[in-house]
Structures are given as C-alpha cells and as structure tokens.
C-alpha cells in the first residue's frame, strides 16, 4: 500500500502540490486524472522517492520513506515498477538487454533465471520474435509494452504508469489498457495510472483522484465523477466528451 500524507512540494516560489493525501491499496488500480502540467507525474516520482516532498510523508507498506537514502530506497523501489511517459528505454540496448539490464545490475541471479524472466515478460507483452530489436525500430505501442515488461521483471506488487496511452493510436492504446487490466486480473497487480484521458480512467481504474491547481479535488470511484459539481470537473468531462 502506498500512502501520501499531507504532501506539499514547492520549487522556489512555485507551488506544485499542496497538501495532497492519497492512499493506493494493493491489487487496486488508482487513476490520477488532471490536465497537463499540473504535477501528476510528480506524484509518481514522490512515490518512488525520486524527489522529496517539501513537507508531508510518503509511506510504502506503512514505512515512511520520505527521508530514505538511495540505498535504503532500493528494496522499496523493487516493490514498484514504473513505466515512464517516454518509456525511458536505453536506446543503445536491444529489447532483451533493456529488460534484463536491471536484473543483472541489482540481483545476483543465475543467467538461466534471468533468461526465463525475460522470456516470461516477452511472452506476456506479446513481443516474442523482437528480442534483438533496438527500441527505435519498434512502434510506439511496442516500445510501451517493452517498458511494461521491464517494469514487471522484478515481480513488483505495484506498477506506476505515467500517461500510458499518451501519443498512441487508438488500437495501441486499447492494447496497453487491456494489458493493464490483465495485470490486475491475472496476477493481482496494483497500479497507479497518471493520465489526462478520461476514457483510460473508465477502462481500467477502480478509483480516481482528480488533481487541479496542486490539490486533490475529487477522490472516489470513476462513476461518481458525473455527480461532481466542481466547475473544473464538469468542464473537463464536457470537453473530453466533445
């Protein structure tokens, strides 16, 4: 379980997040919805300890990781996989090397185990036959699936998606959303999905938090969004429906 307690973040005089409190339960999919540039991706980075909040606490499985060092954060980060918006694949490495890189780096596993894990993820992501391709030679949707495979390679409890369908065509978007739904259904994986696309929320999320001007203005099941009277939510819903 990941918990943010009264988290605020400022860069100089610029306020990014203001008193955010959120709970992400295991085996559930939580969406964080909001317009671009509102600080949604920052929340994911806070959860991983990639940035520190100005105030407040970040807890993972009840452990306060707010002031953890990089070394202390490693076992925490192994519980979570992340899929970055731009995938963050290493462009000089093949798909297989991208997937196995962090296993080789951080876990002292036998080569057979590494190969088995990579094979498992290649199969799950439907990438068999592309083992020796470089990321640049794949389509956007395939690159996203490689990034998902890489995030799953440590067998995490939770996976964090930063705009998983941004920039993808409708067919590729559907494939990615189906993959996320399968992760929850088949292996009981929890997920956080940061997005500005309403249909993604309704496709996979169990609950949704809406971020606006650095604050959470809604936190409930997606269906209740239509009952909200907040002017931003009503305008957001009507714009997306158009």
């Amino acid at each position: 379980m990941i918990e943010l307690r009264h988290v605020s973040l400022r860069y100089g005089t610029r306020e990014i997040l203001n008193d955010i409190s959120l709970t992400i339960e295991d085996k559930k999919v939580k969406a964080i919805l909001g317009p671009s540039g509102v600080g949604k991706s920052t929340i994911i980075k806070l959860m991983l300890g990639l940035i520190k909040p100005t105030s407040g606490q970040v807890l993972v499985d009840g452990v306060d990781i707010t002031h953890f060092s990089e070394v202390e954060l490693f076992p925490i980060r192994q519980k979570m996989g992340i899929v970055f918006q731009g995938n963050a694949l290493f462009d000089s490495m093949t798909i297989t090397e991208n997937m196995s890189f962090f296993l080789r780096e951080n876990l002292n596993l036998p080569e057979a185990e590494i190969e088995a894990r990579v094979k498992e993820q290649m199969k799950f992501a439907g990438l068999e036959g592309f083992e020796n391709y470089l990321p640049d030679s794949l389509s956007g949707g395939m690159r996203k699936r490689v990034a998902i495979g890489r995030a799953l390679i440590f067998h995490p409890k939770m996976i964090l998606f930063d705009e998983p369908t941004a920039g993808l065509d409708p067919v590729s978007s559907k494939k990615i959303l189906d993959l996320i739904a399968r992760l929850q259904r088949e292996i009981g994986l929890g997920a956080v999905i940061v997005t500005h696309i309403l249909s993604d929320v309704f496709a996979v999320a169990d609950s949704v938090a809406v971020l606006y001007q650095g604050r959470i203005i809604f936190n409930d099941v997606p269906q209740k969004l239509y009952e909200s009277t907040h002017s931003f939510i009503t305008s957001f819903l009507s714009n997306q429906e158009d």
Binding site: L50, E70, I82, F84, G86, F102, E105, N106, F154
Partner: peptide, 14 residues
C-alpha cells in the same frame, strides 16, 4: 530529458 537517468534510479542503479 528522456528520463533514462530517472529510470536508472527507479530500478536501483546509481
């Protein structure tokens, strides 16, 4: 800018 350095940190590499 392509978040590869963040990816290194996120997956436990300094």
């Amino acid at each position: 800018i392509s978040e590869q350095i963040d990816a290194l940190r996120a997956f436990g590499t300094d």
